[in-house]
């Protein structure tokens, strides 16, 4: 299943939007943090987990989703949020901790919640799995259309919630798809050192569901496999487990010295940066012209600039607002 041209354009534009957004966040994050790097300082304090390099997974999957479908994401959620259609201005403002943010500054970058497009996060590893199964169950009980996709990292496949929720989804044939972003690392611990098998997709066999491994961080292959899995879920045939080889081009979080990476690993990854790779291939097969791709990049940049401006210009929340919104 090859995406139509407008889908391809959407995928490329969202990948570029995500990357440009993170480039902007990365720069602003460092404001006020030198010469001494203290996480508490600057316009964006706290932890910052960038998703540079992992954009193909987000767009390849979300190209098949509508606003009504459910996504649960992780501590590294920006690319998925952008691909799912989370309001970029309000998301930027949330990352800055502004009153106009999605949660009025209560959540920050690891807790992006946008009910308009059914997007939620947890910073606790694998804890998107249960809620995704629950959303899928709710659709099944209500007879409402829609699927739930849980994005997790490869490290999360060693967490109990992953297995418990997968078994639930399988035994109840829930409309759920689990997408494991295998970036080879869980902070400083390699997949090899932490995981007893090579491919987490093989774990699907334990639950009697289809499992697919997608090498090469290739947005088109991801599009194809995710499309089948999501269509299957929509038909009521149950869950699928997909693992995608992807690349973490940045540190685990900003400030990570990455001393644990083997020499040269980063150079090798940058050479495979999926955005220039996609650009080259779209030009090579003649499906897009330079001017068309430049146009998509320009509009991505404009959206990012607008979002960042909105975030910067927005007011801080009132300090005492911390005490509100605990209960509905």
């Amino acid at each position: 299943m090859q995406p139509a041209k407008d889908t391809l354009a959407w995928m490329y534009e969202k990948m570029v939007t995500s990357r440009r957004f993170e480039n902007a966040i990365e720069k602003i994050y460092m404001e006020g943090k030198s010469p001494v790097f203290n996480m508490a300082d600057g316009p964006i304090p706290g932890e910052m987990h960038l998703s540079d390099g992992q954009e193909p997974v987000a767009v390849g999957v979300c190209a098949h989703l509508e606003a009504g479908d459910v996504v649960t994401a992780t501590h590294r959620p920006h690319h998925q949020a952008i691909a799912k259609g989370v309001d970029l201005k309000k998301m930027a403002a949330e990352i800055f901790g502004k009153a106009t943010g999605l949660s009025g500054g209560r959540g920050g970058h690891m807790h992006i919640f946008d009910a308009e497009v059914n997007f939620a996060c947890s910073g606790i590893i694998a804890q998107g799995m249960g809620p995704a199964a629950g959303a899928a169950l709710s659709r099944q009980i209500q007879g409402k259309p829609g699927v739930a996709v849980s994005f997790i990292g490869e490290g999360a496949a060693n967490q109990g919630a992953f297995h418990e929720a997968l078994n639930l989804a399988a035994v109840w044939k829930l409309p759920m798809v689990v997408v494991v972003e295998d970036n080879a690392w869980g902070i400083s611990v390699s997949k090899e050192a932490s995981t007893a098998i090579k491919r987490n997709s093989d774990r699907a066999a334990a639950y009697g569901i289809p499992g697919h491994y997608i090498p090469g961080n290739d947005p088109l292959k991801i599009y194809e496999v995710a499309g089948e899995a999501i269509a299957r879920a929509r038909r009521g045939e149950g869950p699928t487990l997909i693992e995608v080889e992807t690349y973490r081009l940045a540190g685990h979080f900003m400030g990570d010295a990455e001393g644990y990476r083997p020499d040269g690993e980063k150079d090798g990854l940058f050479a495979k940066d999926p955005i220039p790779v996609m650009r080259t291939s779209l030009l090579a097969d003649g499906s897009f012209t330079d001017a068309e791709l430049d146009g998509l990049e320009t509009s991505a940049q404009a959206a990012v600039d607008e979002a960042i401006r909105f975030a910067r210009d927005s007011a801080d929340p009132k300090p005492e607002d911390a005490l509100t919104a605990v209960f509905a």
Binding site: A40, P45, G46, E94, G97, K98, G104, G105, R106, G107, G108, H109, H111, D316, P317, K318, P319, E320, D321, A322, L323, V326
Partner: peptide, 16 residues
């Protein structure tokens, strides 16, 4: 610490 989850925004967290 007041009986609320810990907010992200600096001004809110410092208030608590």
């Amino acid at each position: 610490y007041p009986d609320v989850p810990i907010p992200f925004a600096r001004v809110m967290e410092q208030h608590c």
